[in-house]
Amino acid sequence: MLLEKLCDEFPHLEIVLEDMNNSHKGQLIDRTVYLNREQTSTQLACTFLEEAMHDLYTVGDISAQKTTIDRKQEQFARRRAYDYLITFDDLADCYYNGFIAYHEAAEYLNISESFLRSTIAYYKTKYGLVYDTGKYIINIEPTINVFRADKNEYLYNYGC
């Protein structure tokens, strides 16, 4: 299970499941991650990872999101969680195992579909629609498409 793996990777954080009446899926207070128990197991894992990234990268109480600095720290922690959990090699692995739709890939990766879609949206702004890893050329829109990169041949050979 992904949550157990993440707990092993961040052993200094304690998890408490509770009913959260507000819109937060999770919140980090000191070294304790409070998670909304209404989430699925995959959502819990993704939320825990985001809160673990807050532990590593954010400073102070940013839960109110009142200032631009708070919102930037929130986005930074989310982006680190995306980078930490999903790589382009993971997307290529999904493709070569037959999982090209986002909901299929999310299930294969054992993450929530919303987390995968957010990751893809972030990767589109960071890398564009097509990314060359050196080993693969990955197109992430509208589904996951992967092509093996062949450096011996020009990608678009128009017969010139």
Rank of each mutant, 00 (worst) to 15 (best):
S23I: 04
D90G: 01
G134F: 08
E113Y: 05
Q73N: 03
L28I: 08
I111W: 01
D90F: 03
E50Y: 01
S118H: 13
Y84A: 03
Q75C: 10
S41C: 11
R148P: 08
T143E: 14
R148N: 14
T40D: 10
Y96V: 08
E51D: 04
E104F: 14
K124H: 11
F147C: 12
A105D: 04
N139R: 05
D8F: 09
F10P: 02
K5L: 09
T42I: 06
H24R: 15
R78I: 05
S112K: 02
E104I: 09
T47R: 03
K126D: 06
L6H: 09
Q39D: 01
Y122W: 12
D90H: 11
L28T: 09
I144V: 09
A105F: 03
R78F: 02
F76E: 12
S112D: 08
D93N: 00
T58F: 02
Y95M: 05
L129A: 02
H12C: 08
T133Y: 02
D55R: 14
T67N: 00
E51V: 06
H103M: 07
L56K: 13
R31G: 03
I69L: 15
Y127N: 07
R71W: 10
S41F: 10
N22P: 04
G98C: 06
E50M: 03
T42C: 07
G128Q: 04
L56V: 09
N139W: 06
R78S: 04
Y122D: 12
E74N: 05
L3D: 06
Q43N: 02
E50Q: 08
E51H: 05
C7F: 07
C46D: 15
N21C: 07
D70P: 06
N139V: 10
D55W: 15
G159C: 07
Y108G: 00
A45L: 01
M20G: 06
T67K: 05
A121D: 10
Y84G: 01
L3H: 06
A64F: 13
L28R: 10
N157P: 14
E9V: 01
L85I: 08
S23L: 04
R79M: 12
M20K: 14
L91E: 12
T143W: 12
D89N: 11
Y123L: 06
L3P: 01
V59K: 15
L28W: 06
I100T: 15
T119P: 01
S41G: 08
N152Y: 11
H103D: 13
E153C: 11
E50D: 07
N157Q: 15
I120A: 00
S41H: 14
S118V: 04
G159W: 09
R117F: 04
